[in-house]
Design a protein around this nucleic acid. Structure first.
Length: 667
RNA sequence: GCCGCCUUAGCUCAGUCGGCUAGAGCGACGCACUCGUAAUGCGUAGGUCGACGGUUCGAUUCCGUCAGGCGGCUCCA
């Protein structure tokens, strides 16, 4: 970030022919232990090499420290090997799957007769500590032939499978087998005796001693090679760091994420619940959650109207024919609630709103003069998410989209998409969400899930890509992730636990207009087909709500807070004074109340603090006499003796400004 | 949907190695107190121990099925 800071680029090293990289690292005086230890080197081709690598010619390499991204991967991959060794020590019958490094840690998959129990993890962690302390060295060994590998790996059926499919594997599996040669890493004890080994591309740490801090996090099942059709293996997740402090910091981040979890805060702040009686993934918003939801809806409705959208409305159920026309049914029948049979017709709960909007478009003749024609509604849709995937507000079975469809000419499409992207960005800004990137989902040309011609897809994808690129935002490609009817740009926002959630979407659709026979009369009198652009700004109101809760850890900005001001009388007889103050606030549209409970005022402050109310207005004898109130803000700062009129104006100003910071005495 | 774990009061959690009236804190309610910046004191109510079935003289406890939750996997228009 800072322009003055010089990046710590390690000086290049030369490894003289016939010596090891470790020798060169030592000769250069670079650290070989501790949180900055050099653990591997990168050769000119960018390939990472073990420190005991011995080039045949003098070779330039760059040292890689344990705290760099590549170094962390080496650390974590080595930790995965230590885990695998520990598992096979404790459970000799365990068969090995794969064990790659991942963000913040690593995992390893095992085929074991009995799933791991939490106590097993403790046992394994202990065994891992012993292995780390034993200072085993990792030694690379190349197999001369496939057959040699197969003989040695005869007892490891999954490894054998990897050897067989070598050359046609994804990156994760490449981490295990590698491209080109087939290699194995042995763990040697102090006497040089082989104690364990694994088919692996490497590279690895020179010794297990360089794993300073790790922890096993959880075990879970995972399908072998990621396919539902394969057997499930038992996966153990761990985390590993270059120092104990970094491990601690990571665990603290997880704890903080847990504190911000919207499911927990939703209960504590009385925002929403998921009654069992209604069903999994079906939310009810309580009054306080309802206020936030309504603020969101009011905001987005007003914004849509400002942006040229017309507010429409459509029913929750429809006869199935509509979804045949749109083309959705064959694709999404499995994830829709099953139909209701009534008077000879099948009715479905809708899982999408676009077909209904198409009918509004088609309800009369349309002229080019009407385009872009923009419809918007809060469309509540129902999707039968599989039972294992339902998750708080972020993955539900009934959700409301702020769904819009823009009908435009082909020529108008780029400008409309740009318009929508700007709309979305200003909305995210207004809600204070800043951690997001764009994703471009395109079709998989090999799949038959996608309809339309190559050219149509190419045109649509190009339009989206151009707008996305022009925006200057980080753009990630998502091949194969498009809807069957067209590509999409989505905004992926990060939640407190680092998961990314799809929020806003913009989709280019050339299929549905044709399927519905949509047309408009052009300037030259011909009838032409519009393009439709689907877009949801919040995406799902429920999901956006959930992400907001986590983003603010429940401490909503004043304009969104369910209760904006609470009056706290110091004695009961100050309550009337505060009541008249609160009435003034209410008259100005502020959500304010007085805490009339018979708690002591300290307790009332504590309660307001726990409810994360932005303004506390306290009044006692002094304030009553002076015609003032004393603010205590959510951050603990305070401002005493503010005259009533000034206090009302102050709150009103902050609420109306829709600022997402504070309030605080400092501001 | 798959694998594992879990489900006791509104919330957070004890507890019962199968046996008398299942406990606590917070919250709620009541009474007393009337206090200047994060918990005043006392008291009261609140649970068919997730549901159904089985084993047993006896089940909240053991077994099974289902529902719901949690962590992953797969999926996510």
């Amino acid at each position: 970030m800072s322009a003055t800071r010089t990046p710590a680029v390690a000086d290049p090293l030369v490894v003289p022919a016939g010596t090891t990289a470790a020798d060169a690292v030592a000769a250069a005086g670079l650290p070989t232990t501790g949180p900055k230890a050099i653990v591997v080197v990168r050769d000119a081709a960018g390939r990472l090499r073990d420190l005991d690598w011995r080039p045949e010619l003098d070779t330039d390499v760059a040292p890689v420290a344990i705290d760099e991204p590549d170094g962390l991967n080496v650390l974590r991959h080595s930790a995965a090997h230590v885990l695998a060794q520990a598992v096979q020590d404790v459970f000799p019958e365990a068969k090995l799957g794969i064990g790659p490094p991942i963000e913040n840690g690593f995992y390893y998959d095992f085929d074991v007769p009995k799933p791991f129990q939490p106590e097993d993890l403790t046992k394994l962690e202990k065994r891992m500590q012993e292995i780390v302390k034993a200072g085993q060295t990792f030694r690379r060994r190349e197999y001369k032939s496939l057959d040699e590998a197969k003989v040695e790996l005869a007892g490891e059926p999954y490894k054998l499978e990897l050897v067989d499919i070598k050359g046609d594997v994804d990156d994760t599996e490449l981490a295990t087998v590698g491209a080109g040669e087939l290699t194995h890493y042995d763990n040697l004890d102090k006497e040089g005796k082989r104690v364990w080994g694994d088919l692996c591309r490497g590279p690895h740490l020179p010794t297990t001693r360089l794993i300073p801090a790790f922890k096993l996090m959880r075990s879970a099942a995972a399908y072998w090679r990621g396919s539902e059709k394969n057997p499930q293996l038992q996966r153990i997740y761990g985390t590993a760091w270059p120092s104990r402090d970094e491990l601690k910091a990571y665990l603290n981040r997880l704890a903080e994420a847990e504190r911000r979890d919207h499911r927990k805060l939703g209960t504590e702040l009385d925002l929403f619940s998921f009654p069992d009686e209604i069903g999994s993934g079906l939310v009810v918003f309580h009054p306080k959650g309802g206020i936030i939801k309504r603020e969101m809806e009011d905001y987005v409705r007003a914004r849509h109207i400002e942006e040229g959208f017309q507010y429409v409305s459509s029913p929750h159920i429809t006869k199935e024919g509509l979804f045949h026309t749109s083309g959705h049914l064959p694709y999404y029948k499995d994830t829709m609630f099953p139909p209701m049979q009534l008077e000879g017709a099948d009715y479905y709960l809708k899982a999408m709103n676009c077909p209904m909007h198409n009918l509004i478009f088609r309800s009369r003749g349309r002229s080019y003069r009407e385009l872009p024609l923009r419809f918007f509604e809060f469309g509540t849709v129902y999707r039968y998410e599989k039972s294992g995937v339902v998750h708080g507000l972020t993955r539900v079975r009934g959700l409301t989209q702020d769904d819009s469809h823009s009908y435009v000419t082909k020529e108008q499409a780029p400008a409309e998409i740009k318009h929508l992207l700007n709309f979305v960005r200003s909305l995210l800004d207004d809600f204070g969400l800043d951690d997001y990137y764009l994703e471009l989902s395109t079709r998989d040309p090999k799949s038959d899930k996608f309809i339309g011609t190559d050219e149509q897809w190419a045109v649509a994808t190009k339009v989206l890509e151009d707008v996305a690129t022009e925006s200057g935002l980080e753009l990630v490609l998502d091949p194969g992730g498009a809807a069957f009817y067209g590509p999409k740009i989505s905004v992926q926002a990060k939640d407190a636990i680092g998961r990314t959630w799809q929020m806003s979407t913009i989709q280019y659709d050339f299929n549905q207009p044709a399927r519905f026979g949509l047309e408009f009369q052009a300037a030259d009198g011909t009838r032409q087909e519009p393009v439709m652009i689907h877009s949801a700004k919040f995406g799902s109101i429920e999901r956006f709500f959930g992400v907001l809760v986590e983003h603010y850890a429940g401490a909503f900005p004043a304009w969104l807070a369910p209760v904006q001001v609470v009056g706290i009388p110091i004695r009961d007889d100050h309550a009337d004074y505060l009541t008249s103050f609160v009435e003034k606030l209410r008259a100005a549209g502020v959500r304010a109340e007085v805490d009339y409970s018979d708690d002591r005022m300290q307790k009332k402050i504590r309660t307001a603090q726990q409810q994360k109310i932005p303004f506390m207005a306290i009044a006692g004898d002094d304030d009553v006499a002076a015609g003032t109130v004393s603010f205590r803000y959510r951050d603990g700062s305070q401002r005493n003796g503010v005259s009533v009129d000034e206090a009302v104006a102050h709150v009103v100003e902050i609420v109306r400004s829709r600022t997402n910071v504070g309030p605080s005495a400092a501001a």
